[in-house]
């Protein structure tokens, strides 16, 4: 029924593997970075806090595509020879980190003050209180936003093709330029992205509902 899509499917799926790998790297490293920075923002001093606030403000206010280009062009200027794929991965990790840091900061602030007051009245030190009282509760609150951010990030890995990194969207454009079968290929590629994203988006929604129910 879709001859062009069928004959090019192996090529597109190869691109999808690159998309999935890029997404996995960006989501896992970006989440780790963001949670770390979010925690730092909650325990650090005023200077550290304002640096982190600036980082979050700057990266959240600029399109991810611009961040990708910025990374792509500034790594060589810093003397680093990176291929487009790596440059995009690093840029996206820093970008996703800003969103996760904001979510983490919000989640930590969302832990009821009664909890920290109780910990303090038991004589807990700040570090122990963070580790054993605040973080376990905050992490529960942060899962749903992180899932939504991950979903956003997976879709944004397609922008890597504009910078020149080969993945699913890049492969799709190559095939369309060769075959002109825009509908078959791009609709097929949308379906591939849908298959990658849909489970995550179902999980995010289920979690949203459960957390809303709990509270």
């Amino acid at each position: 029924m879709f001859p062009v899509l069928q004959s090019n499917l192996p090529y597109l799926l190869q691109g999808a593997v690159y998309t999935v790998i890029l997404s996995a790297i960006v989501v896992s490293c970006g989440t780790a970075l963001g949670v770390g920075i979010g925690v730092l923002a909650s325990v650090g001093g005023a200077i550290l806090r304002s640096i982190i606030t600036a980082y979050i403000f700057l990266f959240r206010g600029v399109p991810v595509l611009v961040i990708m280009f910025l990374g792509f062009y500034s790594f060589p200027a810093l003397g680093l020879r990176l291929d487009a794929y790596t440059a995009v991965a690093i840029s996206m990790i820093v970008y996703v980190g800003a969103f996760v840091a904001e979510a983490t900061r919000g989640a930590i602030a969302g832990v009821p003050t009664g909890q920290t007051e109780a910990a303090k009245s038991l004589g807990m030190r700040k570090g122990k209180m963070m580790r054993e009282i605040v973080l376990p509760q905050a992490m529960r609150l942060v899962i749903a936003p992180v899932l939504n951010i991950s979903l956003m990030a997976i879709k944004q890995t397609s922008y890597a093709s504009i910078v020149g990194a080969w993945e699913l969207s890049f492969a799709a454009r190559e095939v369309v330029e060769r075959t002109l079968a825009a509908f078959q290929i791009f609709l097929g590629v949308m379906l591939i992205y849908f298959i990658i994203c849909y489970p995550l988006s179902l999980a995010a929604r289920a979690l949203d509902k459960r957390l809303a129910f709990d509270s």
Partner: peptide, 18 residues
């Protein structure tokens, strides 16, 4: 659902090339 779970870039390509 389709809009939420596929990238805007590909949708844009679909219109522009389709």
């Amino acid at each position: 659902e389709v809009m939420r779970n596929s990238p805007l870039l590909v949708q844009m390509y679909l219109l522009y090339f389709g």
